[in-house]
Design a protein around this nucleic acid. Structure first.
Length: 228
DNA sequence: CTAATGATGTCCT
DNA sequence: GGACATCATTAGA
């Protein structure tokens, strides 16, 4: 295993803040989804320890043409942020109890988002476990603390008060940072999206779920993670 | 105004 | 493999 990768010193960029480049999110949601695998999700809540996770599972959602996307109804009060600038947070509530965090993507003016489905905890695992205290049974393992869109939001303290936040600003209590290791070393795989069987074809079975297939933090049953 | 429903997770048998 | 908790959002009367 290589532990000695030398990163070039960038005088303009502080070592601790390596904002995820917005340009990588502006082309289209599927490309944005692939680019986000390996990137870091950072939660810097005031007065609390830093929480960091490595993104290992995401899903791409398109505009009105994508019948599995919330944008299928066009621009509504809820989905308006999906039509906005890439790199901002789209947070919503599903099933009346679980929050889901998305990264707005695609060209400005066209709707698109990438749902963050799972991250691998790197720092602040004690706080993540505490934040998931209502679900003691499922969170037996540190690697599974943020394994699922609802679990991720719970572990990172994300709710709709973060809706619209710029995740690429470099600072901020919720943000994205570049991968710490070379992206080409990541084992990407694609599967159909989870929980969208209500949509008609081809949208229901479109392979727009992107994963790092070597990760132990993927959502679903640990023995056989969904989609493999 | 009412009604239907979901980009889920947990616990049960 | 199945029940169900629980509410914002949307479509429709």
């Amino acid at each position: 295993m290589r532990r000695d990768i030398h990163l070039p010193r960038l005088s303009a960029t502080p070592v601790d803040s390596r904002p995820f480049p917005r340009s990588r999110l502006e082309s289209d949601p599927l490309e944005a989804a692939s680019a986000l695998i390996g990137a870091l999700l950072v939660r810097d809540a005031p007065g609390l320890p830093l929480r960091v996770g490595r993104i290992v599972e995401v899903e791409a959602y398109g505009g009105p043409e994508d019948l599995a996307s919330h944008a299928r109804a066009g621009r509504t009060p809820r989905t308006s942020v999906m039509f906005g600038a890439a790199g901002h947070a789209y947070v919503y509530l599903v099933y009346g109890m679980h929050h889901c965090l998305n990264v707005v993507s695609g060209p400005a003016g066209s709707a698109g988002a990438v749902l963050l489905r799972a991250v691998e905890p790197l720092e602040g695992t004690a706080l993540m476990r505490e934040a998931r205290a209502d679900a003691p049974r499922a969170a037996v393992d540190d690697t599974k603390l943020a394994s699922g869109p609802g679990r991720l939001c719970l572990a990172f303290g994300v709710d709709r008060s973060q809706n619209g936040l710029d995740l690429c600003a470099g600072t901020g209590s919720l943000r994205l940072e570049r991968p710490r290791h070379a992206p080409e070393t990541i084992a990407l795989a694609r599967t159909p999206r989870i929980g969208v069987t209500y949509a008609s074809e081809p949208w229901a079975s479109q392979a727009w779920r992107v994963i790092d297939r070597t990760s132990a933090a993927l959502s679903g049953p640990s023995s056989n993670p969904r989609g493999l």
